[in-house]
Every structure is written in structure tokens, then in C-alpha cells.
Nucleic acid binder design. Structure first.
Length: 760
RNA sequence: GGGCGAGUGGCGGAAUUGGCAGACGCGCAGGAUUCAGGUUCCUGUGUCCGCAAGGACGUGGGGGUUCAACUCCCCCCUCGCCCACCA
């Protein structure tokens, strides 16, 4: 949970690091806007009120944020620089406007980026998205696809699943593009294939419904009557909601394509299973080696040809039952007969290039980032549309382009800013003619893609960030966030950082070399949401038992990366939580220790130093649950030592300090009030441990007979192999278990274990 | 359909990466304190047999490697997440 990040910040500060632990609010965007509309409030009013409440809650929880660097992305002082960055991308051709089919959420009345469409539905509200052809602003993230992929290999230390998710999202595939010619018209059509080695097995050709040639070809082929209804239906279906139902559906166009490798004429089809969004919107179909093509061929009675056979299997080219997509040897493939298949892919690609009929190509699944939104609560796009000069950048000295307050901000088909009586009126910065402002706002993810730079020089009125200060603080030593950011925020931020690097503004290319995913707090197995009404506010627990209890409950409940089911953890709200009782025992033990003159007994000293070592390691690795467990063990041992009349001052001091990052209020009270230190525990230096003391001196050696534990013997940690063997074989319990059988082998692993293997 | 991850007591979870399974805590049971509830303290608590000493079993299921497997390998089951007509 979130207090883990705070614990690490406090821990690293105590270790002497210069820690920048900032806080900010990504406050523009749909959730805030929708919530405000629902309450009948202005988004600005609602947002700031909400921020204040959260800030209070954070303070109450003892979060050690540097409040002087606090940011809100909806402040004009902030979004001025978001707009500036937009203009920098525009200058470099990385922000551009184009007409294309886009995802439209009818409920939120705005377009969405591909990344914000989950299983065909709006990420925010769950409404099935529609497709619309609109002119929108895009960021050219596809220019960076390869670098976004490569840099994950050696520049970031991230959870595997996040790396995998980004990799899948970018979706690089290697193959070849091949040019087919339409026999009747001479049109050249490019296709992409990952399997150019199957080119000789192509028996038909399929276009996506959106392909620009479809209508023309149908007309020439005389099939417009059959094709038209299919197009109409497919084009009106939501982009992402074309399900398996129409897998084998398709209509012949009545024209033929010429296979460039063998001159064969193959029939052309239009079918919904081919997507315009991937590759070129047209495919060569190889039913012998692709299951979908085979299904389609069966349905439409098309030829199937095998061109790759399992090696060594002298099988005739009968109709395959299943498309063979494994390795093998090429057959029926002209000059390539006998070549081994996966290896031949590159050769075929090279050969195509020689012949001028194709070339090796790499495609990516990643699309350009659509950043226009037809909503009010966002940073206005700083562009003016001039009848003569087209899209013109707002001059930097006129930034920010302020978001007006007096707007009917309810969503409705076009941007609310367009409905404002005068806001969009402007003059062209180039010619001074009357012009119109762009009335869309930017996707919130633009705001959050660069905020970490702003934290380094938050008040700077002359630049987005101070490069020198960025050089000092960045990249971020430790980033934390939920997995929900695995693709969106992390991908966009990496893109922005690379762009800024290419502009010469920053010296590094990855903003977050180290990332930890924190789990969410859920309730009864379901994620908490306002609509489900199962939000657990931290405040009731904090009011009743204190912030430290809340922090410890969350940190102790499970590993940092795992979700916490509050229903399972919380217990009876009227009963004192276990961690609270523990803190009580810490106070009592420290109090007793403070009154004792005796020095800590040896066993306790050793445990204290071992605990410091262990907790230090645990906090470095975000393992708060085991760190707390170790502190509880130390507390128990202190109490035993005190009960036996010994001292526990060293233990109490170290305990208070190690508690400081986790339970800052209790730790401070123990440190100052109970132990009488004049300065704060939070400015004390993290305790050091003595290697010799931390090393265990006596350990329990286990004696096994045939793998079963039969005895335990206390030995010196430095005990020799011989002594271990002797002790084990002398053990009465072991002798009883051996029961006179022949001893075949004695495995000795000093000082922990001896295993006596018998003939039985 | 593809990819990734996970399955350990009544519950949350430990286990130095092949070496004492269940640390620490919650819960529960018994006891002490208390008029009572709560608090606090002590004891016990994987399952089965046994008064006990002790023994057998035990990390989703099945097989394997090893002196030794929660950990490594193969097959299967269940759950979670991500992607999904990706050519």
C-alpha cells in the first residue's frame, strides 16, 4: 500500500541520502470532471476541494512529502508548460493532425486513445466504444517504437510482467512486405507477412473492409451488389467489437491478384477477419499454414497447398486437416525447394528485395497516441487554425492558453470550448487575420507524462524545468505505482523522456530505471469503487487507533506488490488491532529498559544487530511485512531479557529508530519521551550493525536419518565437518532411528545439517 | 486461442533460493486480572493415532531428478492478470 513508498523515503533519508519525495495531483481529466458534473459543481471547484481533502488525509497519515514542491496539473502555471511541450513536439513533427477512424465513447462524448480502450470498452466508464472518422491530434510515438523496446532490455529494472505487457503492447513482428498486382487494374497492393517462406502456398488474397481499393475492385469485378452490404455492416460495427462470429465470412471481389513469386492468379476477397489497423489492411492467404486462412478456404471451397513439410516425413501434399505452422522443409516452392523453413525466412526476404517485389520489414502493433479530447477539463491545445496558414502554433510568450471558467462544460458531441461565445476567436500569429482556436483539450496522460521533471524546479516561471536541477535529481531512483499504469502512463512517460533527450534537454533516456508495483487495497475480493459503495476510508481507523496503526496494518498485511483485502485484514473495528497492541508492548519495554542500568545481555545484543541487518535489507527491497515481523521478534526478546532482570537499552534505541520509517509517530515518542533523546528520531542516523555480533555464534544442527529429522543439537557456528558427523552419529535418537542398519552415507553440511543414509 | 503469474494451517502470510515447512501476526481454546464487556498478561494451537513418551501423514493432483524438493524437471487441475481474427 501507499505508505510503503513513504517508509522507503524516510528510511533512505535516515541512511543519509538526499531524498526528494514529492507529491502532486494529476487533476485534469474525466474522473474529476464527471464527478463534478454529477454533483452539479464546477470541475475546478470540485477538484481543488477534493485535493485539499486528500492532502489533509496524507498529512494525517504522516506522509513525509516535500509539500513545497506540490503540483497540480490543472494549475495554469503547470499546464502552461504542458502546452509548451506540445508545441515542441509540433515543431519537431511529432504532433500532427490527421483524419482517421478513432474510438469514440458515446457516454463520455470524447475520443479515446487505443490504450484507453479495454476489450472494446471505454476504460473509464465501460461503455462500448464506437468508431468515428475524425480529424484529431496525434503524438508520433511510433517513431520511438524500437527504442521503447530496446531500452527495456538494459536500462530498466522493472517487474517482469510490466516489461512483458509493454513488449506485447508495442508488438514488434519481423517479416516481409510483398507487392501483389491486381490483374485487372494493375494496382499494386502491399501486404505484410511474418512468413514470406510460405509465399508459394498463397491461394487467395483478402482485403479488409476499410481498404481504399475494395469498392473500386468490386465494381470492376461486378460484385458491388454482394460486397456493399458486407461493407456497410462491417464499417458500422465498433472497431474493437468484431467477434469470432464472422470468422469465415467474406465475399469474393471478382478480381484476381498476381502472386509475384510464381505469377499465379489468385481470387481476391473482402472479409472482416482482416483488419485495417494491423499491417497494410490486405493479406496473402496461405491456408496450408495458417489456421484462419484454412477455415476461410474450407468455407469458400478454395485451394489449399502445402509448401512446408515436417522434416524427414515423405508425406504427399494431401489436404491438411490442420494448418502446419511449425518448422520443416520447403516444397513446391520453386528455387527454395529443400530449404529449412524458419531459417529460410530471411533468405526469401532478401530474394524478394533482389527481385524488386518486396523487402524485409518490421511492423509494430503500437499506434500513434491520440491526444485530442472533446472535453472541458483539460489543457487546451495551443494551436490556432488560420484560413490561410492552417495549423499555427500559439507563440510561446502567449502561453498559457487559459481554460475559461465560464463554460457550459457538460459533454455533448463537440468540445464544450467550441460552445463558448468568444473563447475560440483569435487572430493568426502569422498574418493577423481572424482565426479560430483549437477547441479540444489534451488527454490527461499528456499532463502526467512529464510532471517528474517539474518536481525538480516546481516554481520556475521561465521554463518547464531547470535542466541543471533535473540533471542533479533525475532519473527517479525509485518509482512506485500500481500495475494499472503498466502500459499507459509508463509508456507515455518513457516516450516523453526520449523526446526531451533528443531535444538535448535531458541527458538520460529512461525516467524510471527502478520500478516497484504496489498492490491495491480491495474489499471482499473486489476492487473498491464509488459505484460499488465499498470504499474503505482510512480515516475511521486513523481516528480510532492512530495513523501508525493504519500504516502498520497495511505494511504488515502482505508483501508490497500484493493486493490487500481489507475485509480480511481489518477484523472487528472495536477491537484493538494486533499492531496497536505491539506498539503498546514496545512502549512498555522501552520504558522499562530506560529505567534499567544493566547492559543488554549477550543474546539480546546479538539479536539486535542481526535485526538491524535484516531490517535494513528488507527495507531496501520493500519487504515491510518481514521487517515488521523481525521487529516484533526483537520486541519479544527484549521483554524476556527484561523479565530476567537484564537491560535492553541498545535494543530499545535501535528498535525506535527502525520503527521510525514505519510508524513515525510512535517511534518519535519512544525516542524522545521514553528514551530521552533531545533530537528527533527522524534526523537520527540509521543504526549500524556490528558484523561480528550479527553473525550467529551458535546454531541448531539438525540430524536426519534417511531424510527425516530425528534430533536437534546446539553447535558452534564454526563447527567442523568431523565434529558434526561425530555428534550426529553419537546422538541417541539418531541411533534409535538407525536401528542397527548399515550406514551407507553421511551427508554433512556444517553447521546446519547431517543426514545419515542407511541401507534400509 | 496466445502470453505471464500464482496455488502453503480456520485467516494474512514466512522459509537465507535445494537443507528444521508453517517465522511473525490474526483468530480460536484454556487460565490469571476485572462486577461485567473491553484491555493487559500467561499457556496451547497443521492433521491423525496416543494419557504421555513417541509415531505417521502433510505445501492443488500425478510422475520424475536428488542423500534431501514448497523450492528444480514433465503432465494435469484450479484461480488471477494481460493480449486477443496480429497475417
Amino acid at each position: 500500500a501507499f505508505s510503503g513508498g513513504d517508509a522507503v523515503a524516510r528510511f533512505q533519508a535516515m541512511r543519509g541520502h538526499n531524498v526528494l519525495h514529492p507529491i502532486g495531483w494529476d487533476a485534469f481529466g474525466l474522473p474529476a470532471e464527471n464527478a463534478a458534473i454529477k454533483r452539479g459543481l464546477h470541475p475546478k471547484e470540485w477538484t481543488y476541494a477534493n485535493i485539499e481533502q486528500q492532502a489533509r488525509s496524507f498529512r494525517r497519515m504522516g506522509m513525509s512529502f516535500d509539500w513545497t514542491r506540490r503540483l497540480h496539473t490543472c494549475d495554469p502555471e503547470y499546464y502552461r508548460w504542458t502546452q509548451w511541450l506540445f508545441l515542441k513536439l509540433f515543431e519537431r513533427g511529432l504532433a500532427y493532425r490527421k483524419n482517421s477512424p478513432v474510438n469514440w465513447c458515446p457516454n463520455d462524448a470524447t475520443v479515446l486513445a487505443n490504450e484507453q480502450v479495454i476489450q472494446g470498452a471505454c476504460e473509464r466508464c465501460g461503455t462500448v466504444v464506437e468508431r468515428r472518422d475524425l480529424t484529431q491530434w496525434f503524438f508520433k510515438i511510433t517513431d520511438y517504437a524500437q527504442r521503447l523496446l530496446d531500452d527495456m532490455d538494459d536500462l530498466v529494472d522493472w517487474p517482469d510482467r510490466v516489461v512483458t505487457m509493454q513488449r506485447n503492447w508495442i508488438g514488434r513482428s519481423e517479416g516481409a512486405s510483398v507487392t501483389f498486382t491486381i490483374d485487372e487494374t494493375g494496382d499494386e497492393v502491399e501486404v505484410f507477412t511474418t512468413r514470406p517462406d510460405t509465399l508459394w502456398g498463397v491461394t487467395f488474397f483478402v482485403f479488409a473492409a476499410e481498404h481504399p481499393l475494395v469498392r473500386k475492385l468490386a465494381e470492376i469485378g461486378g460484385t458491388l451488389e454482394q460486397v456493399e452490404p458486407l461493407l456497410e455492416r462491417v464499417l458500422s460495427t465498433p472497431l474493437t467489437a468484431r467477434e469470432e462470429a464472422d470468422t469465415k465470412e467474406g465475399v469474393a471481389l471478382g478480381v484476381y491478384a498476381v502472386n509475384p513469386v510464381n505469377g499465379e492468379k489468385i481470387p481476391c476477397y473482402v472479409a472482416p477477419y482482416v483488419l485495417m489497423e494491423y499491417g497494410t489492411g490486405a493479406i496473402m492467404a496461405v491456408p496450408g499454414h495458417d489456421q484462419r486462412d484454412l477455415d476461410f478456404a474450407r468455407q469458400h471451397g478454395l485451394a489449399v497447398r502445402v509448401v512446408i513439410r515436417p522434416e524427414g516425413e515423405d508425406r504427399p501434399d494431401e489436404e491438411p486437416i490442420e494448418a502446419w505452422d511449425h518448422e520443416g522443409v520447403m516444397v513446391n516452392s520453386g528455387p527454395f525447394d529443400g530449404e529449412r523453413s524458419p531459417e529460410s525466412i530471411a533468405k526469401v526476404a532478401a530474394w524478394l528485395e533482389e527481385q524488386g517485389r518486396g523487402r524485409a520489414t518490421v511492423t509494430f502493433r503500437l499506434r500513434d497516441w491520440l491526444i485530442s479530447r472533446q472535453r472541458y477539463w483539460g489543457a487546451p491545445i495551443p494551436i490556432v487554425h488560420c484560413p490561410e496558414h492552417g495549423e499555427v502554433a500559439v507563440p510561446e510568450d502567449q502561453l498559457p492558453v487559459l481554460l475559461p471558467d465560464d463554460v457550459d462544460f457538460r459533454p455533448g458531441g463537440e468540445s464544450p470550448l467550441a460552445r463558448h461565445p468568444s473563447w475560440k476567436d483569435a487572430t493568426c500569429p502569422k498574418c493577423g487575420q481572424a482565426a479560430t482556436r483549437d477547441t479540444d483539450t489534451m488527454d490527461t496522460f499528456v499532463d502526467s507524462s512529464w510532471y517528474f521533471f517539474r518536481y525538480c524546479s516546481p516554481g520556475d516561471e521561465t521554463q518547464a524545468f531547470n535542466p541543471e536541477k533535473v540533471g542533479r535529481w533525475m532519473p527517479v531512483s525509485q518509482y512506485t505505482g500500481g500495475v494499472e499504469h503498466a502500459i499507459l502512463h509508463l509508456l507515455y512517460s518513457r516516450f516523453f523522456t526520449k523526446v526531451l533527450h533528443d531535444m538535448g534537454l535531458v541527458s538520460f533516456t529512461e525516467p524510471f530505471p527502478r520500478l516497484m508495483n504496489q498492490g491495491q487495497v480491495i474489499y471482499g475480493g473486489a476492487s473498491m469503487s464509488k459505484t460499488k459503495g465499498n470504499i474503505v476510508e482510512p480515516m475511521p481507523v486513523v481516528e480510532r487507533w492512530g495513523a501508525d496503526t493504519m500504516r502498520l496494518m497495511m505494511l504488515f498485511a502482505s508483501p508490497f506488490e500484493d493486493d490487500i483485502d481489507w475485509k480480511l485484514i481489518a477484523g472487528d473495528p472495536d477491537r484493538r488491532p494486533g499492531v496497536t497492541s505491539w506498539l503498546g508492548r514496545v512502549f512498555a519495554a522501552a520504558g522499562e529498559a530506560a529505567e534499567r542500568d544493566a547492559v543488554d545481555p549477550d543474546d539480546l545484543r546479538r539479536l539486535t544487530h542481526r535485526t538491524i541487518r535484516g531490517v535494513t535489507e528488507d527495507l531496501e527491497r520493500f519487504r515491510f511485512n518481514t521487517a515488521i515481523s523481525k521487529l516484533q521478534v526483537l520486541t519479544n526478546e527484549m521483554r524476556s531479557a527484561l523479565d530476567a532482570g537484564g537491560g535492553a537499552r541498545e535494543a530499545a534505541s535501535a528498535l525506535a529508530q527502525m520503527l521510525a520509517p514505519l510508524a513515525p509517530f510512535a517511534a518519535e515518542e519512544v525516542w524522545r519521551e521514553v528514551l530521552g533523546n533531545p533530537a528527533s528520531v527522524h534526523v537520527s542516523a540509521w543504526p549500524a550493525y556490528d558484523e561480528d555480533l550479527a553473525r550467529e555464534e551458535r546454531v541448531t544442527m539438525v540430524v536426519q536419518v534417511d531424510g527425516k529429522v530425528r534430533d536437534r543439537i546446539e553447535v558452534e557456528a564454526a563447527v567442523s565437518e568431523e565434529v558434526c558427523r561425530e555428534l550426529a552419529l553419537a546422538s541417541e535418537r539418531a541411533i534409535r532411528a538407525i536401528d542397527g542398519r548399515e550406514v551407507r552415507q553421511v551427508v554433512v553440511r556444517p553447521p546446519r545439517l547431517v543426514n545419515v543414509v542407511t541401507a534400509g
